[in-house]
Design a protein around this nucleic acid. Structure first.
Lengths: 211, 211, 211, 211
DNA sequence: AATGAATGAGGTTTCATTCAT
DNA sequence: AATGAATGAAACCTCATTCAT
C-alpha cells in the first residue's frame, strides 16, 4: 500500500466516521435535533471539517438514505420465488426472506430507525425516505405476483393491496422490535430475529386463526 | 346569553380556530416546519395572540394529541366482544370495529396523519404520540384476549404479539390510505372505508391464503 | 394624534433609524465590511429587530439605492431647458442644475458615496447602482438633445457620447469633493457647492481653453 | 539552462498564472466575491499552493495594484510637453497621450476595471487603488502646469482643479468603454481607442461648444 | 513546490417567546 | 383579548489560513 492509498484511506475513513455518527444521531434524536456541532464534537474535529467532506446537512442525510435503500432492496430482491412448491415451502421461503430482513435491520438499526420514523425531517429528505419504503413495497409486490404466477397464491387477490398490508405488518413489527429494545416487557422486542421472522411469516399466511 | 358568555364564546372560538390550524399544519408539514408565525398568519391574528391562548408551541401540540387519544381509544373500546359466536361473527365484529376506525380516520385525517407520521417532533411530543398508539394497541390486545376467553381464537397465540401485528397492519393501511389520497394509482387510497375494513379484517384472520 | 399614529410612527422611526445607519456604514466602510451586528449595535437594538423591519441585508441595501435613484433623477429632470437663449443663458442654466445637484450631494453625502464607489457589493446591488447612474446619464442626455433641438448646441455632436462625458466629469468632481472632504490640500474638496457648479459648468461648455 | 533554472522558471510561470487569474477575477467579480478556492480551481492547483507563492489574499491584490500603477504613470509621463506650439499642437499632443492611455487600457482591461471600480475591497487595498489614481492625476496636473508655463493655456486656471476634471472625464470615459464592451448600443463602448482619444481631447479643450 | 485535509472565527438568518401598550 | 415590536440564543455555513506529509 503506497502513500496515496494511505492518504485517501484516511480521508475516506474520516468521511465514513462522520457518516456513521450522523446516521446514529439522526435516528436517535431526529434530523432537526441533530446539530452539525454535535456531530463534529463526537468526531473530535472542527466544524469546518464537516463541510470539507459534505456539502450540507441535507446532503449527508440524503446520502445516508440512498445508501440504505440500495442495501435494503438488495436484501428483499433475493427473496424471489423461482419454483412451485407446497404451502410449507412458501411459508419457509417467506420466513427466510424475513429472517434476512430482520437480521439486516438488527445490524443496521439506526438506518432502520431513520427510515421507519423519519424523525422530523425536511421535505426533500422525507420524500427520499418515502421513496425507499416504496421501493421495498414494490419488491414485496413482485414476490407476490411471482407466487400467483406459480399458482402458489390464489388468483383473486390484489398483489398491490396485499403488498401494502404485508409491508405494513413488517414495518410495524420492525419498529416495535428495534425501537423498544429497551423495554423488557414488550412481547416483540425481546424476541430473536428468527422467532419474529417465523411469527410474522405465519401471520402473513394464516392470519390470526392460523396455527 | 349575556355579554360575558358572548365574549368567552368568542375566545373559545378563536382558541379552537388556532388549534385546528395548528393540527392541520403539524400533520401536513411537520412540527418543526410549522412556525408560530404561520399559524397566526393563517388565523389572521397577531403573534402575541397565540401566547394568550396557549402557553407554548409544545403545549398546543400536546393538547392536540391528548384530545385525539381520548377519541381514538373510545372508538376502539366499543369493539369489545361480549358473546361467543361463529368465525363469521368474529370477522364481522372485527370488520365493524375497523369500519368505525377507518371512518373516524377519514373524518380526522390530520389527527391521524400526525399520529401516524409523528413528523419531526421533539422528545416530549414524540413520547406523547407513542403513548397514544400504545393505548390503541392495548385496546386491540383486550379484544384479542376476550376472544380467546370466549374460545373464538386458539389458546396458543400470544395476545400481545398478535395485537402488535394487528396494530401494525392497521397503522400501515391507514397511513397509505390517508397520506396517498392524492395518488389515483394506489391500490389502497382509492378504496372506501368499508372496502378497506373488509379487506383488512380478512387479512387479519386468514392471512394471504384466506379467501 | 391618536395611539395608532404614535405606534406606527414609532415603528417607522425605528425603521428609518436603521436605514440611516446602514446607509452611512455602507458608504463609509462598504457593504461587506458592514455587519448587521454593527448596525444594530449602533441603533441600540437586538439583532432580531433588524429582521423585523427588513427582510435581509441585501433588501435594505436595495431599498436605500432605489430611494436614492428617485431623488437624484428628480433633481436632474428639473433642469430641462424649455426656451431658446444665449450661450450665457445655457451656461447659467447648466450651472443652476449643477448647483442643485451638488447641494443635494452635500445633503446626502453617504448616498452619493455609496453610488459613486459601490463599495464591495454583491451582483444584484452593484447592478442596481449601475441602473441609478444610467438613469442620471439619461437625464443629462435628454437635456443635451433638447438644447440641440432648440439650436443652442451644434447639430454635429453625439448626445449620448457627450452625456457620457458630462456624467463622467460630474461623477469625478463629486467623488473628489465628497470623499476627500477631510483633505485640506485638495483643490476640489474645499470649495463650495456654488463654486464647483460654476467651474464645472464652464469646463462643460468651454473645456480647458474657456475662460 | 540547468535544472534549477528550469525549476524556477516553472515556479515563476505558476506565480504569474495565479496573478493573472486573480487580477481577472478581482476585476470581474470584485475582491470579496473572489475566493482563493476559485483562483486555485481555475489554476488547477491545490489550495495550499496559493500560499506557497503569496503571503495572503491581501498581498496578491496589493501586488497587482502596485505593478499596475508603475505601468500607468509611465504611460502618462511620456506625455510631458516640451515646446511651445499652436492650439492645434496642444490638441494633437493631448490626443496622443490619450491614445496611448486608451490603448494601454485596452491591453490591460482587467487592471483598469480593478482600478476604476475598486470592487468591494478592504481598506488597505482601497487606499492603494486611490494612490494609483492620485498618481495619474498628478501626472496630468504636471502636464497642465507645463502648458501654462509655455503660455499654451491661460494663466487664470487652477491646474489642480482642471487636472481633477480632466481625470474625471478620462476615468469616466474609460469605465464606460471597458466595462460596457458587451453592450452594442452604447455610444462609447463600440468606438476605437483612436476615436475616443480624439473625442475626449476635443471635449477637454473646447467643451460641449467646441467643434 | 505542492497537496489537501483540517481549522475556527465570524457572518447572516431564524424563530419561539416576552412585554409594554 | 389583542397587538406587534423587540429579544437573543442558536443554527448553518463560509472561507482565509495552517500544516503534516
Amino acid at each position: 500500500m503506497n502513500i496515496e492509498d494511505t492518504n485517501s484511506n484516511k480521508s475516506i475513513d474520516r468521511r465514513n466516521q462522520i457518516l456513521q455518527i450522523a446516521l446514529e444521531r439522526f435516528a436517535k434524536y431526529g434530523y432537526h435535533q441533530t446539530k452539525i456541532s454535535d456531530i463534529v464534537a463526537e468526531a473530535g474535529v472542527a466544524q469546518g471539517t464537516f463541510y470539507w467532506h459534505f456539502k450540507s446537512k441535507e446532503a449527508i442525510a440524503l446520502e445516508i438514505i440512498r445508501d440504505g435503500q440500495e442495501q435494503l432492496t438488495a436484501v428483499i430482491s433475493r427473496g424471489y420465488r423461482e419454483r412451485v412448491g407446497t404451502i410449507q415451502d412458501m411459508v419457509q421461503a417467506s420466513e427466510n426472506l424475513l429472517r434476512n430482513l430482520f437480521k439486516f435491520a438488527e445490524d443496521h438499526r439506526y438506518l432502520m430507525e431513520l427510515l421507519l420514523t423519519g424523525n422530523g425531517v425536511d421535505e426533500s429528505i422525507r420524500s427520499s425516505i418515502h421513496d425507499t419504503r416504496l421501493a421495498m413495497e414494490v419488491s414485496f409486490r413482485r414476490n407476490i405476483e411471482r407466487a400467483i404466477e406459480l399458482g402458489m397464491l390464489p388468483e383473486g387477490i390484489d398483489p398491490e393491496l396485499r403488498a401494502a398490508m404485508l409491508m405494513s405488518l413488517i414495518e410495524g413489527v420492525l419498529s416495535r422490535w428495534l425501537l423498544n429494545k429497551a423495554d423488557p416487557n414488550s412481547a416483540v422486542s425481546n424476541r430473536s430475529a428468527e422467532e419474529l421472522a417465523a411469527e410474522t411469516a405465519r401471520f402473513e399466511f394464516f392470519g390470526l386463526l392460523g396455527i
